[in-house]
Design a protein around this nucleic acid. Structure first.
Length: 629
DNA sequence: GCCGTTTTCGGCCCGACTGTTTTCAGTCG
């Protein structure tokens, strides 16, 4: 087992160290990863924690910026970024000008790049990793395992035989645990079930999910369950005995208020209990994000309070937190009271990522986020005529009973043969089927025989298509046919590996078409399966805004495309949207929940989303391009 | 390294657990 085995593969470091690399080609994420690597190495070297934190803050700031940083620097218009001061600004300028960053190159050359992989082992932090490397030359997981088995770790100061054993167990754990995160839909369903279960336990006043599930993140690592009860011990006991619990990871902790268990074939579940009437700070704390909480605690400190999950404690003149018997601890029943205490309006969980929500809250400019109930129709659905699994009528009846005012049926166009795309002749046949159904719906509504749950304005099935933007760049139906659809959704499934220029040219044709209303799932990604298309995103958003072409937030939980960051960037560029299910099955109508979560995380309001419009207004917008929502 | 209607220097988010260096530093969430 040589140290070359088990070397972690390429990092952004190696990409930028390449002479002649095109600096403009570096995405914000790639630039951010360089600064994270700087922070990693500084951490291993035992640098000042605040310096390390500064690099991480700058990295996050860069990653979240809607502006393409390298392009801006090269254009001579570097943006003002929070957390980027003189030193980091100079490094960015150097990177933009030369494609390299000397400081980064010197740092990563000073330690083996594989060293950061040691940090994945529970109990091994940067300090220990650095010590082990300096003392024993341990640089990889394989090195670490070998040294532990040979009993050499315990020769290092601060590591006992017991710690050595724990590290061995940790290595096995890393190997056994795939880094898989649950998709949003699965996580939400599981969280809902756990909340319902907890509410049946004796002495439970209320239960709810926190963490990334509550913030609506696209994938979820573990689940957080908050339970209000007067009998905390009894509840934690219930958790340990609950069905579906494989093992207890950590028993009762935190002075008896929390525990963690591993769910059978599922994620880890962290359970926090608190006394009824003081849930506020706990809920804020365990909803996160960590970055958002940091901002709240900073603000609390500015106001003379120390904020933790338990509540607000006073800070005295010397800056020390006042603790002990009789020390004041302010607690609140609701989150709204916690935020109010900090002089802020309540902030929606989906916004709590430190992406400007604190500033917006202070300025009174928080968005009024779009809600699932705002959706009046669904613009992207399929039937068994192509690759859907239900008849047109079955899908329409379901949409009707869900209370929609309209559904756009968008079966595939003919070049997408794998999905059984429709020929122009079939399109005409489908139009007649839709016309007949709509006549029937109108008759039923006139006779007062609409199904329960139906929209007061009635329901109409609209005729659309999901038109392929072909590999040769042409649209799949001619203009005469396209003009006859109520709604044209364009998308790109084939030729995904074309160059950025080719892909952009294809999208540009669709965006500039007077008939294309919506671009479906623009990035083409599938979570954990397929990467994004290689696009010039800034240009894409600009074209969409300029041509008044709507961009879809596709709610299929393996797509979620646009994702939250892209939706936010597109919004800032002036784009407008739809939120759609892309339903192929009856069960997939629900996808709009996940799409809406993404849209909310992207700061979208109902007024930015075309399918929140009533039917007549929606059709009026679709009739004219550019679409002005 | 960043940042400032308290500061251009001296701060920078919190609590719990763990092991061990027996008074606290490192790790974790």
């Amino acid at each position: 087992m040589s140290s070359a085995d088990g070397q972690e593969p390429t990092t952004a470091a190696e990409a930028t160290a390449t002479p002649g690399a095109n600096p403009a080609a570096l995405t914000n994420e790639q630039v951010a990863s360089l600064f994270h690597e700087i922070a990693d190495v500084l951490e291993i070297q035992g640098e000042l924690p605040f310096k390390i934190g500064a690099y991480r803050r700058a990295a996050d700031s860069i990653a979240h910026s809607p502006i393409d940083i390298m392009t801006a620097y090269r254009a001579g218009t570097p943006p003002r970024l929070p957390g980027v001061g003189k030193a980091i600004d100079e490094k960015l300028a150097e990177l933009a000008a030369t494609g390299r960053m000397g400081y980064h190159e010197r740092l990563v050359a000073a330690v083996p790049p594989s060293l950061v992989t040691l940090l994945r082992v529970p109990g091994v932090g940067p300090r220990t990793a650095g010590d082990l490397w300096r003392a024993l030359g341990v640089a990889t997981l394989d090195d670490l395992e070998l040294a532990a088995r040979e009993g050499r770790l315990r020769t290092v100061k601060g590591i006992s035989a017991k710690t050595e054993q724990r590290i061995l167990e940790g290595i096995a754990e890393v190997a056994a645990r795939p880094p898989k995160r649950m998709h949003m839909a699965e996580a939400r369903e599981l969280a809902d079930r756990l909340v319902a279960l907890a509410e049946t336990w004796p002495g439970v006043a209320s239960a709810q999910a926190g963490g990334s599930v509550r913030r609506g993140r696209e994938t979820v690592g573990d689940l957080d369950l908050l339970v209000a009860t007067d009998d905390q011990a009894a509840v934690l006991d219930e958790v340990h005995r609950a069905p579906g619990v494989e093992r207890v990871v950590t028993g009762v902790r935190g002075g008896g208020y929390r525990t963690s268990v591993q769910l059978l074939r599922g994620p880890q579940l962290d359970v926090m209990t608190m006394r009824p009437g003081r849930e506020g700070t706990y809920l804020v704390h365990f909803t996160g994000s960590a970055a958002h909480n940091v901002r709240l605690r900073e603000r609390a400190r500015d106001l003379g309070w120390s904020l933790s999950e338990h509540g607000f404690a006073r800070i005295d003149e010397s800056g020390e937190v006042v603790t002990g018997d009789g020390a004041e601890l302010r607690t609140f029943a609701t989150e709204a009271e916690v935020y109010d205490f900090l002089g802020l309006p309540w902030i929606e969980p989906e916004l709590r990522e430190d992406r400007g929500e604190i500033e917006a809250a202070l300025a009174g400019t928080l968005p009024r986020l779009v809600r699932v109930e705002d959706l009046q129709g669904d613009c992207h659905t399929h039937s068994e005529w192509t690759d859907g699994k239900e008849s047109i009528e079955t899908m329409a009846q379901a949409a009707r009973q869900l209370g929609y005012a309209y559904q756009v049926l968008t079966d595939h166009s003919w070049s997408l043969t794998i999905a059984n795309g429709l020929s122009p002749t079939q399109v005409e046949q489908q139009r007649r089927v839709i016309g007949d159904l709509n006549e029937r719906f109108a008759r039923e509504e006139a006779a007062g025989e609409a199904p329960p749950g139906a929209h007061p304005s009635g329901f109409r099935l609209l005729h659309g298509c999901e038109m392929e933007i072909r590999i040769d760049g042409r649209l799949d139906y001619d203009d005469a046919l396209l003009a006859r659809f109520d709604v044209v959704v364009a998308s790109l499934h084939v030729g995904r590996r074309q160059s950025r220029a080719q892909l952009m040219a294809r999208y540009e044709t669709a965006l500039r078409s007077p008939h294309v209303d919506i671009i479906a799932h623009p990035s083409g990604r599938k979570i954990d399966q397929r990467p994004d298309l290689d696009l010039d995103w800034d240009r894409f958003y600009r074209l969409a805004a300029e041509t008044g072409t709507l961009l879809e937030v596709n709610g299929s939980d393996e797509r979620l495309d646009l994702d939250d960051r892209r939706a936010r960037a597109a919004l800032d560029a002036g784009c407008r949207f739809t939120i759609d299910s892309d339903a192929h099955y009856l069960s997939e109508w629900d996808n709009v929940r996940w799409g809406t979560a993404m849209a909310r995380r992207g700061w979208l309001e109902a007024r930015h989303v075309a399918n929140t419009l009533p039917r007549e207004a929606f059709l009026a917008v679709m009739a004219e391009k550019p679409h002005r929502v």
